[in-house]
Amino acid sequence: MHGNSLRRGSIAGLPAGSGGALPALVLVGLFFVVPVVALLLRSVTDPEPGLQNYAALFGSGTYVRVFLNTFLVAAVVTAVTIVVAFPVAWMLAIMPPAFGSIVFGIIILSMWTNLLTRTYAWMVLLQRTGVINRTLMGMGITQEPLPLINNLTGVTIGMVYIMLPFMILPLVGTLRAIDPMTLRAAALCGATPFQAFRRILLPLSLPGIAAGGLMVFVMSLGYFVTPALLGGTSNMMLAEMIAQTVQSLLNWGLGSAAAFVLLVVTMALYVLQLRLVGGKRPAGGL
Protein backbone atom coordinates (compact mmCIF):
# COMPACT_ATOMS: atom_id res chain seq x y z
CA MET A 1 0.00 0.00 0.00
CA HIS A 2 2.73 2.35 0.96
CA GLY A 3 4.66 1.67 -2.24
CA ASN A 4 1.53 2.17 -4.26
CA SER A 5 0.74 5.59 -2.87
CA LEU A 6 4.35 6.60 -3.26
CA ARG A 7 4.29 5.64 -6.90
CA ARG A 8 1.08 7.45 -7.54
CA GLY A 9 2.43 10.54 -5.87
CA SER A 10 5.56 10.47 -7.96
CA ILE A 11 3.59 10.08 -11.17
CA ALA A 12 1.59 13.19 -10.33
CA GLY A 13 4.84 15.02 -9.72
CA LEU A 14 6.47 13.75 -12.90
CA PRO A 15 6.86 15.94 -15.96
CA ALA A 16 4.56 15.52 -18.94
CA GLY A 17 4.77 12.33 -20.91
CA SER A 18 7.48 10.70 -18.85
CA GLY A 19 5.25 8.18 -17.07
CA GLY A 20 5.78 5.43 -19.66
CA ALA A 21 9.48 5.35 -18.92
CA LEU A 22 8.84 4.46 -15.29
CA PRO A 23 8.88 0.62 -15.57
CA ALA A 24 12.09 0.78 -17.60
CA LEU A 25 13.60 3.21 -15.15
CA VAL A 26 12.69 0.99 -12.18
CA LEU A 27 14.06 -2.10 -13.92
CA VAL A 28 17.34 -0.51 -14.97
CA GLY A 29 17.70 1.46 -11.75
CA LEU A 30 17.07 -1.44 -9.41
CA PHE A 31 18.71 -4.28 -11.31
CA PHE A 32 21.45 -2.48 -13.21
CA VAL A 33 22.48 0.76 -11.56
CA VAL A 34 22.20 -0.51 -7.97
CA PRO A 35 24.21 -3.73 -8.54
CA VAL A 36 26.90 -1.93 -10.54
CA VAL A 37 27.25 0.87 -7.98
CA ALA A 38 27.30 -1.71 -5.18
CA LEU A 39 30.08 -3.54 -7.00
CA LEU A 40 32.09 -0.38 -7.42
CA LEU A 41 31.67 0.45 -3.74
CA ARG A 42 32.99 -2.99 -2.99
CA SER A 43 36.26 -2.09 -4.68
CA VAL A 44 36.94 0.45 -1.92
CA THR A 45 35.38 -1.47 0.99
CA ASP A 46 36.30 -5.13 0.48
CA PRO A 47 37.96 -6.54 2.48
CA GLU A 48 38.42 -3.22 4.32
CA PRO A 49 37.84 0.46 3.43
CA GLY A 50 40.65 2.05 1.46
CA LEU A 51 42.30 2.07 -1.93
CA GLN A 52 44.40 -1.03 -1.34
CA ASN A 53 42.67 -2.91 -4.20
CA TYR A 54 43.67 -0.24 -6.71
CA ALA A 55 47.18 -0.19 -5.28
CA ALA A 56 47.38 -3.96 -5.77
CA LEU A 57 45.97 -3.65 -9.29
CA PHE A 58 48.40 -1.02 -10.52
CA GLY A 59 51.32 -2.19 -8.36
CA SER A 60 51.48 -5.71 -9.71
CA GLY A 61 53.33 -6.48 -12.91
CA THR A 62 50.89 -9.28 -13.66
CA TYR A 63 47.85 -7.05 -13.65
CA VAL A 64 49.54 -4.20 -15.48
CA ARG A 65 50.49 -6.73 -18.14
CA VAL A 66 46.83 -7.75 -18.40
CA PHE A 67 45.88 -4.10 -18.94
CA LEU A 68 48.53 -3.62 -21.59
CA ASN A 69 47.63 -6.86 -23.29
CA THR A 70 43.95 -5.92 -23.32
CA PHE A 71 44.74 -2.63 -25.05
CA LEU A 72 47.12 -4.36 -27.43
CA VAL A 73 44.57 -6.97 -28.48
CA ALA A 74 41.81 -4.39 -28.82
CA ALA A 75 44.08 -2.15 -30.90
CA VAL A 76 45.23 -4.97 -33.18
CA VAL A 77 41.67 -6.25 -33.63
CA THR A 78 40.42 -2.73 -34.41
CA ALA A 79 43.19 -2.05 -36.93
CA VAL A 80 42.73 -5.37 -38.74
CA THR A 81 38.94 -4.97 -38.72
CA ILE A 82 39.15 -1.50 -40.29
CA VAL A 83 41.57 -2.64 -43.00
CA VAL A 84 39.44 -5.66 -43.89
CA ALA A 85 36.07 -3.91 -43.56
CA PHE A 86 36.81 -0.83 -45.67
CA PRO A 87 37.14 -2.46 -49.10
CA VAL A 88 34.12 -4.65 -48.40
CA ALA A 89 32.00 -1.69 -47.32
CA TRP A 90 33.23 0.24 -50.37
CA MET A 91 32.16 -2.54 -52.71
CA LEU A 92 28.83 -3.01 -50.92
CA ALA A 93 28.10 0.71 -51.09
CA ILE A 94 28.29 0.81 -54.89
CA MET A 95 27.67 -2.70 -56.21
CA PRO A 96 24.35 -3.67 -57.82
CA PRO A 97 21.88 -4.75 -55.12
CA ALA A 98 21.43 -8.20 -56.67
CA PHE A 99 24.98 -9.24 -55.74
CA GLY A 100 25.17 -7.00 -52.72
CA SER A 101 22.20 -8.59 -51.01
CA ILE A 102 23.94 -11.98 -51.05
CA VAL A 103 26.94 -10.53 -49.24
CA PHE A 104 24.63 -8.69 -46.83
CA GLY A 105 22.84 -11.99 -46.19
CA ILE A 106 26.13 -13.69 -45.32
CA ILE A 107 27.07 -10.83 -42.99
CA ILE A 108 23.73 -11.03 -41.18
CA LEU A 109 23.94 -14.82 -40.95
CA SER A 110 27.38 -14.57 -39.41
CA MET A 111 26.28 -11.81 -37.05
CA TRP A 112 23.16 -13.61 -35.86
CA THR A 113 24.77 -17.00 -35.43
CA ASN A 114 25.34 -17.91 -31.81
CA LEU A 115 28.58 -16.41 -30.51
CA LEU A 116 29.74 -19.67 -28.96
CA THR A 117 29.03 -21.54 -32.18
CA ARG A 118 31.24 -19.18 -34.13
CA THR A 119 34.01 -19.32 -31.56
CA TYR A 120 33.75 -23.11 -31.40
CA ALA A 121 34.14 -23.29 -35.17
CA TRP A 122 37.34 -21.28 -34.98
CA MET A 123 38.65 -23.46 -32.15
CA VAL A 124 38.20 -26.50 -34.38
CA LEU A 125 39.57 -24.77 -37.47
CA LEU A 126 42.64 -23.33 -35.79
CA GLN A 127 43.71 -26.23 -33.56
CA ARG A 128 47.03 -28.01 -34.09
CA THR A 129 45.41 -30.79 -36.06
CA GLY A 130 42.71 -28.53 -37.52
CA VAL A 131 41.81 -27.99 -41.15
CA ILE A 132 43.92 -24.89 -41.61
CA ASN A 133 47.12 -26.48 -40.31
CA ARG A 134 46.52 -29.67 -42.28
CA THR A 135 45.91 -27.69 -45.44
CA LEU A 136 49.02 -25.58 -44.96
CA MET A 137 51.11 -28.69 -44.28
CA GLY A 138 49.52 -30.54 -47.16
CA MET A 139 50.46 -27.71 -49.50
CA GLY A 140 53.98 -27.80 -48.13
CA ILE A 141 53.83 -24.23 -46.91
CA THR A 142 54.85 -25.34 -43.45
CA GLN A 143 56.38 -28.53 -42.02
CA GLU A 144 55.14 -28.21 -38.45
CA PRO A 145 51.65 -27.16 -37.39
CA LEU A 146 51.58 -23.40 -36.82
CA PRO A 147 50.51 -22.21 -33.37
CA LEU A 148 47.24 -20.55 -34.37
CA ILE A 149 45.30 -20.94 -31.17
CA ASN A 150 45.79 -20.02 -27.51
CA ASN A 151 47.75 -16.96 -28.54
CA LEU A 152 47.34 -13.48 -30.00
CA THR A 153 46.82 -14.87 -33.52
CA GLY A 154 43.85 -16.95 -32.44
CA VAL A 155 42.24 -14.13 -30.49
CA THR A 156 42.75 -11.70 -33.38
CA ILE A 157 41.23 -14.03 -35.97
CA GLY A 158 38.26 -14.88 -33.77
CA MET A 159 37.62 -11.30 -32.67
CA VAL A 160 37.99 -9.81 -36.15
CA TYR A 161 35.48 -12.39 -37.33
CA ILE A 162 32.99 -11.21 -34.73
CA MET A 163 33.65 -7.48 -35.12
CA LEU A 164 33.60 -7.27 -38.94
CA PRO A 165 29.81 -6.82 -39.31
CA PHE A 166 29.87 -4.01 -36.72
CA MET A 167 32.42 -2.17 -38.84
CA ILE A 168 31.15 -3.01 -42.33
CA LEU A 169 27.48 -2.10 -41.85
CA PRO A 170 27.95 1.49 -40.54
CA LEU A 171 30.76 2.11 -43.05
CA VAL A 172 28.45 1.21 -45.92
CA GLY A 173 26.17 3.98 -44.65
CA THR A 174 29.02 6.48 -44.50
CA LEU A 175 30.22 5.63 -48.00
CA ARG A 176 26.72 5.72 -49.47
CA ALA A 177 26.29 9.21 -48.07
CA ILE A 178 29.23 10.48 -50.14
CA ASP A 179 28.11 11.97 -53.46
CA PRO A 180 29.76 9.96 -56.28
CA MET A 181 29.89 13.24 -58.21
CA THR A 182 32.49 14.48 -55.73
CA LEU A 183 34.81 11.69 -56.87
CA ARG A 184 34.05 12.40 -60.52
CA ALA A 185 34.93 16.02 -59.90
CA ALA A 186 38.21 14.92 -58.33
CA ALA A 187 39.01 12.78 -61.36
CA LEU A 188 38.29 15.60 -63.81
CA CYS A 189 40.47 17.88 -61.66
CA GLY A 190 43.28 15.52 -62.57
CA ALA A 191 43.45 13.32 -59.48
CA THR A 192 44.67 9.80 -60.20
CA PRO A 193 42.57 7.06 -58.60
CA PHE A 194 45.12 6.82 -55.81
CA GLN A 195 45.12 10.59 -55.22
CA ALA A 196 41.32 10.66 -55.27
CA PHE A 197 41.31 7.87 -52.68
CA ARG A 198 43.87 9.42 -50.39
CA ARG A 199 42.78 13.03 -50.63
CA ILE A 200 38.99 12.70 -51.04
CA LEU A 201 37.43 9.29 -50.39
CA LEU A 202 39.47 8.41 -47.32
CA PRO A 203 39.11 11.79 -45.56
CA LEU A 204 35.39 11.82 -46.29
CA SER A 205 34.91 8.35 -44.82
CA LEU A 206 37.12 9.08 -41.83
CA PRO A 207 34.24 10.04 -39.49
CA GLY A 208 32.62 6.65 -40.18
CA ILE A 209 35.94 4.83 -39.77
CA ALA A 210 36.62 6.62 -36.51
CA ALA A 211 33.15 5.99 -35.09
CA GLY A 212 33.09 2.34 -36.15
CA GLY A 213 36.68 1.81 -35.03
CA LEU A 214 35.99 3.26 -31.61
CA MET A 215 32.95 1.03 -31.24
CA VAL A 216 34.96 -2.06 -32.18
CA PHE A 217 37.74 -0.99 -29.83
CA VAL A 218 35.33 -0.49 -26.93
CA MET A 219 33.61 -3.82 -27.55
CA SER A 220 36.95 -5.61 -27.83
CA LEU A 221 38.22 -4.13 -24.56
CA GLY A 222 35.50 -5.81 -22.54
CA TYR A 223 35.15 -9.02 -24.53
CA PHE A 224 35.11 -12.20 -22.54
CA VAL A 225 34.05 -15.32 -24.43
CA THR A 226 36.27 -15.30 -27.50
CA PRO A 227 39.54 -14.35 -25.77
CA ALA A 228 38.83 -16.90 -23.06
CA LEU A 229 38.40 -19.70 -25.60
CA LEU A 230 40.90 -18.72 -28.32
CA GLY A 231 43.51 -16.86 -26.29
CA GLY A 232 46.33 -18.21 -24.21
CA THR A 233 47.05 -17.95 -20.50
CA SER A 234 50.05 -15.76 -21.17
CA ASN A 235 47.98 -13.06 -22.83
CA MET A 236 44.85 -12.95 -20.73
CA MET A 237 42.49 -10.03 -21.25
CA LEU A 238 40.87 -7.85 -18.64
CA ALA A 239 37.36 -9.33 -18.78
CA GLU A 240 38.67 -12.83 -18.28
CA MET A 241 40.86 -11.68 -15.43
CA ILE A 242 37.89 -10.02 -13.71
CA ALA A 243 35.79 -13.16 -14.05
CA GLN A 244 38.59 -15.36 -12.77
CA THR A 245 39.44 -13.10 -9.83
CA VAL A 246 35.84 -13.20 -8.68
CA GLN A 247 34.89 -16.74 -9.61
CA SER A 248 38.02 -18.74 -8.82
CA LEU A 249 39.95 -16.54 -6.42
CA LEU A 250 36.82 -15.12 -4.76
CA ASN A 251 38.71 -11.83 -4.46
CA TRP A 252 35.75 -9.52 -4.88
CA GLY A 253 37.59 -6.37 -3.91
CA LEU A 254 40.26 -6.75 -6.56
CA GLY A 255 37.79 -7.94 -9.19
CA SER A 256 35.56 -4.94 -8.52
CA ALA A 257 38.48 -2.55 -8.81
CA ALA A 258 39.42 -4.05 -12.18
CA ALA A 259 35.76 -3.87 -13.25
CA PHE A 260 35.69 -0.20 -12.29
CA VAL A 261 38.77 0.50 -14.42
CA LEU A 262 37.14 -1.28 -17.37
CA LEU A 263 33.91 0.64 -16.83
CA VAL A 264 35.59 4.05 -16.73
CA VAL A 265 37.65 3.43 -19.87
CA THR A 266 34.68 2.01 -21.75
CA MET A 267 32.30 4.79 -20.83
CA ALA A 268 34.84 7.50 -21.65
CA LEU A 269 35.43 6.05 -25.11
CA TYR A 270 31.69 5.57 -25.58
CA VAL A 271 31.02 9.23 -24.90
CA LEU A 272 33.81 10.11 -27.34
CA GLN A 273 32.20 7.90 -29.94
CA LEU A 274 28.81 9.57 -29.42
CA ARG A 275 30.49 12.93 -29.97
CA LEU A 276 32.00 11.67 -33.21
CA VAL A 277 28.72 10.34 -34.53
CA GLY A 278 26.80 13.42 -33.41
CA GLY A 279 29.37 15.89 -34.77
CA LYS A 280 28.27 17.69 -37.92
CA ARG A 281 31.50 18.72 -39.57
CA PRO A 282 33.57 15.78 -40.75
CA ALA A 283 36.58 15.32 -38.53
CA GLY A 284 38.79 15.88 -41.55
CA GLY A 285 42.04 14.25 -42.50
CA LEU A 286 44.20 17.30 -42.96
Binding site: D179, M181, R184, A185, I200, G285
Partner: peptide, 10 residues
Protein backbone atom coordinates in the same frame (compact mmCIF):
# COMPACT_ATOMS: atom_id res chain seq x y z
CA UNK B 1 28.29 20.35 -61.76
CA UNK B 2 24.65 20.88 -60.94
CA UNK B 3 25.24 20.02 -57.29
CA UNK B 4 28.34 21.94 -56.36
CA UNK B 5 30.49 18.86 -55.57
CA UNK B 6 33.02 20.87 -53.63
CA UNK B 7 35.19 18.74 -51.35
CA UNK B 8 33.49 19.32 -48.00
CA UNK B 9 36.60 18.59 -45.92
CA UNK B 10 38.78 21.15 -47.73
Amino acid sequence: FQRYTLFPHL
